[in-house]
Computed example of a mutant assay.
Amino acid sequence: RDDRKQGLPIAVIATPTYFMPNTEDWLRTKFTCKFAPRADKDILISLIDDADVLICQPCPEYRIDADVLKEASKLKVIASTSTGTNHIDVDYCNKNSIKVVCLRGSNKVNNIVASSEFTFGLVLAITRQIPQSFNNAKAGRWREDEDVFRGIELRGKRMGIIGYGRIGSNNARYAKAFGMKVWAHDPYVSITDPDIVQRDSAFDVIENSDVLMVCVHLNESTRKMVNETWFDSMRDGIYFINTSRGEIVDEEALLKNLKSGKIAAAGLDVISDEFTGDKNIHPIIEYARNNSNLIVTPHIAGLTYGSERKALEIVLDSIVKIL
């Protein structure tokens, strides 16, 4: 929808807002709005040619790069309701004086817990094989396969957390509530909780964990950080969680260790190159299709009514300050 109003900056809003009527009403007071939820690449290109602001999808099926932005000569701000920006060509934006804003750096983001809750949900899903047993029940099979579905109790197990930011620290609290021992590594944080064992070396955590989750931002230092050396250092039969970004993990090494049984099971909400390519033939998806020790979800950890509303409010505050 295109709500033209004289004198207001033009905003293309490609992230879904139709379930937030009050927020849409507020947007119309500040911008001439072009609502285009989940717009495909060609439609987005046609809409932003005269736009001042783009509020993009946090997980589009294409990268917002020079090919998308080259005709958007008026564009001043791209906002993403996500902590990561690897779906945006930030270098191109910097060279063309386009501000990129996201949730990272805002104190208000600590009020968003959807991704944290989902991450711990994956822990339960892989240690108790919840999706697989549900599929059995739908097929009319009951306890016939109980030896396949026998899992572990979390109480008394050690949770290892790499990255003790918002999601990592929230999951430490959840793990404690389940009676787990928690070890964590984050060189940028001093952990004050006396129940959390902070280790200076990531490998101290990796080598001593029953469940390991990675909660870090993607940058050049973390790209493929979880590699064969990490997997070699893990305990046999470990459970592995990643809801950060797919590029943080060497996926070839992950699949090798899933196949060998070194990793008992893994739960992922992200895969590499998820903004491009055919996901149907992605090696992670292909493996998950044919094996029961890998659960993959389509980057939905933050997908709740409340979290999306809060995230949009955060980036809107940043946009208004810039304009």
Rank of each mutant, 00 (worst) to 15 (best):
K5S: 12
Q6M: 12
Q6A: 15
G7S: 07
G7A: 05
L8W: 00
V12L: 09
I13Y: 04
A14C: 12
F19H: 09
M20L: 11
M20I: 03
D25R: 11
W26E: 15
W26M: 12
K34L: 15
R38K: 08
I43T: 14
L47V: 07
A51S: 09
Q57E: 15
Q57Y: 09
E61I: 04
A66Q: 14
T81A: 15
S82G: 09
G84M: 13
V90I: 05
V90M: 00
N110S: 13
S115H: 02
F118S: 14
T119F: 04
I126L: 08
T127N: 09
R128C: 10
Q129A: 06
R141Y: 05
R141S: 12
W142H: 05
E144F: 04
D145F: 08
I152M: 14
E153M: 14
G160I: 01
G160S: 03
I161C: 03
I162K: 03
G163K: 00
G165R: 04
G168E: 13
N170T: 11
A172F: 10
A175M: 06
G179I: 06
V182M: 07
P194T: 01
A202F: 08
F203A: 08
S209Q: 03
D210P: 05
L212H: 04
C215V: 07
V216Y: 00
M225P: 06
V226H: 04
E228L: 13
W230Q: 01
D232Q: 12
D236A: 07
Y239E: 01
S244Q: 01
R245V: 12
L258Q: 04
K262L: 14
L268M: 14
D273E: 15
D273F: 05
E274S: 03
G277C: 10
H282E: 02
E286C: 09
S292A: 10
S292H: 03
S292T: 08
H299L: 14
G302C: 09
L303V: 13
I314E: 06
V315L: 03
L316I: 13
S318D: 15
I319N: 05
K321T: 14
I322A: 01
